[in-house]
Design a protein around this nucleic acid. Structure first.
Lengths: 251, 251
DNA sequence: CGGCATTTTGATAACCATCAAGACGTGTGG
DNA sequence: CCACACGTCTTGATGGTTATCAAAATGCCG
């Protein structure tokens, strides 16, 4: 049954904890459906209630965002294959933010109550999901720091470093560089800057030979300098607990 | 045994979920110790490994912060009685930020592995802890939005609104106003501004009759205007799931 | 090829940081 | 009880970083 889309979840969890046969079976028996979203489709809308399912990314990218009354948009996180898109729906009654497809997105939608039961009844799975949720929270904390204390150049450098490491941990890096499927406006919304200023800062990094670009692919030419500029330390990603999901990501 | 400091945790969880006798007993049997911290003592230090316990606030206030290489300090959250101070330690192997006492702080330190077991083996308790962790994450998202998209005036108004509602939900409001035990420098570090600018913005809000101050006590004189300025919506606090902890907060 | 989104570049201005000095408040020691 | 010291808050002056506005250049898709 390797065609069961839930196998991706099993593989992800297996990178974090020891799963016994019963755990695996419990996951593979979860009521679910697969779905494809095109950009920029909404997967979740703020204020939505009675969500029926939780969503897992099989392939593609998505982001979470919140809007201000004045129309400002803040991207609060970016998600890659192997991430849960709306873990908060597992136990919260309404959505407090929007989730949108950044690229074409293949997902598995898992029945919320069934997943709750599995999480609460299977300690190994519960532990894996806890680690997931706690790493998410850790990334949010770093983003608050990034947007609150760093200047434009540092913020962008930090974002590029984070993405590089997460892509790498998920086995999605490509020949040294990686594809960053975001417009400069979206990068700006993620770090609290305008698209105009993002353009200037990226140009500066290119001119200095720290990164290179080809369309929306970014390649890091000088990791150490970029890391220093972005004041980047990978501790907050808890990669020692994130595991490798390469075979899974190959899809 | 109402003198058991863990009763505070039982009461907190009871506001969220239905606890059976076995759940209550499991909590009350947790290995623990009480402790008092003076400001500005560190409860957790970034990079610390092999944490032995999780900390619950019985009384007093604390905050989480991260530092940049240049010395900038970002306060990423503020915690009040009834909050867990370091939920992330439950399943993550090292601390990714610092936690400090904002006021004199009375805590209960619970053995990490024992708490893990209880969370994983007692579905009701697990559910309550999940809600706690997911609300924490929701607040981080809102802070990213606050710092990333709002101007100084809006950020401060938003912080005041959030604190007012959280204090109220915890039963800690006092005669219309509330005590905000933060210096203006700390407020600045929480919203990404300098103490100088915080001073100016607070003065403006006082001059307009929206708030009043007496030392570090803040009283909201015109909730609706403050709410409008801060673009504040309480949805993200998930108060419908936060429960009332008044009897508990009375300490 | 034409149309639209995105990126780039330049000019100007707003917001907030920085620097500096003085006022206020609180606790301590003489 | 007063004097002093220290942390905090206030106020003013100046400058830097980034937003805003505008227009042209580039890339992408039908």
């Amino acid at each position: 049954m390797s065609s069961n889309p839930l196998m991706a979840m099993v593989r992800k969890f297996a990178t974090r904890v020891e799963l016994v046969e019963a755990d695996r079976d419990a996951i593979l028996r979860l009521p679910h459906a697969t779905r494809i979203y095109e950009t920029p489709a909404y997967i979740v809308r703020e204020g939505a209630t009675s969500m029926r399912h939780c969503t897992f990314i099989s392939s593609g990218f998505a982001f979470r965002q919140k809007l201000t009354a004045e129309g400002g948009r803040q991207i609060v996180s970016i998600h890659i294959p192997g991430d849960f898109l709306d873990l908060q729906h597992l136990f919260l009654n309404h959505a407090d933010h929007n989730v949108q497809a950044l690229t074409r997105l293949h997902t598995v939608e898992i029945d919320r109550h069934a997943l709750q039961e599995v999480v609460l009844r299977h300690p190994a799975i519960g532990r894996a999901m806890w680690v997931d949720a706690l790493i998410d929270a850790s990334i949010y904390r770093e983003w608050v720091l990034n947007v609150g204390q760093r200047n434009a150049r540092q913020r962008i450098a930090h974002l590029l470093c984070e993405f590089a490491l997460r892509m790498d941990a998920a086995g999605l890096q490509e020949k040294g560089g990686y594809h960053l499927p975001m417009t400069q406006e979206q990068i700006g919304d993620a770090v609290g800057l305008t698209n105009v200023h993002v353009s200037r800062m990226l140009k500066a990094l290119v001119d200095e030979g720290i990164i290179s670009r080809d369309r929306r692919s970014v390649k890091i030419e000088d990791w150490e300098r970029l890391r220093a500029i972005g004041d980047f330390s990978a501790l907050y990603l808890h990669l020692d607990q994130a595991g490798q999901v390469q075979e899974f990501a190959a899809q």
